[in-house]
């Protein structure tokens, strides 16, 4: 029982990071916390699979990534191609207490406009500090794929931040 409590404590300690990653993926606060909640619920049913002594971080991020991909897949199934136009991007309504600086909003908006694959790759490495090997493992892709997603994602972000010019884009799944 004490061991179980240790595991729960270790999972609890990862929640702030999971919330940050989810917010980066989804932007919307409630949707992001829903994703974290789903992740924690799934993790709790699988606590036995997690070896004591191993950091739960990678394990939890992998679970969350699978949930995120499932969610995207459900949406993708509804569409052959999903055409996004930048000017249709909604302005997220933030809670009044939150001061969302323009610079913050710009980069968060830009992040939402790049493909989810590229978004996840960049955030795992550049924000969450995972190595390429760890991030590739979490995302279930070869390291080369991860690298190309990071490189393309950074170029996408740069172009969005520079131009802000609406450019229709067809989401193409990176292979």
């Amino acid at each position: 029982m004490a061991e179980m409590d240790d595991r729960r404590g270790a999972v609890l300690a990862e929640i702030p990071r999971l919330r940050r990653y989810a917010r980066a993926l989804l932007r919307d606060r409630d949707a992001a916390d829903d994703l974290v909640q789903d992740c924690l619920e799934r993790a709790l049913t699988r606590l036995d699979n997690w070896r004591t002594g191993e950091s739960p971080r990678r394990w939890l991020f992998t679970i969350m990534h699978h949930l995120f991909v499932d969610q995207l897949r459900k949406v993708k199934r509804t569409a052959e191609v999903i055409a996004f136009s930048a000017d249709a991007q909604p302005e997220a309504v933030e809670q009044a207490s939150q001061v969302d600086a323009v610079a913050t909003r710009e980069i968060m908006d830009a992040l939402q406009k790049i493909s989810p694959d590229r978004r996840a790759a960049i955030v795992l490495v550049a924000v969450e500090g995972f190595s390429y090997a760890e991030a590739a493992n979490i995302l279930g892709v070869p390291a080369g794929t991860l690298m190309s997603r990071i490189a393309r994602g950074r170029d996408d972000l740069r172009a969005l931040l520079d131009g802000g010019a609406p450019r229709p884009m067809i989401r193409v799944v990176d292979r």
Binding site: R8, R19, A24, Q37, L40
Partner: peptide, 22 residues
């Protein structure tokens, strides 16, 4: 800039609905 934009999220208090799960 991206790291700064997201930094605050990790500092927020964990919402009760998440903490209570554990």
């Amino acid at each position: 800039r991206l790291a700064a934009a997201l930094a605050d999220v990790a500092e927020e208090a964990v919402p009760e609905r998440l903490a209570s799960l554990l």
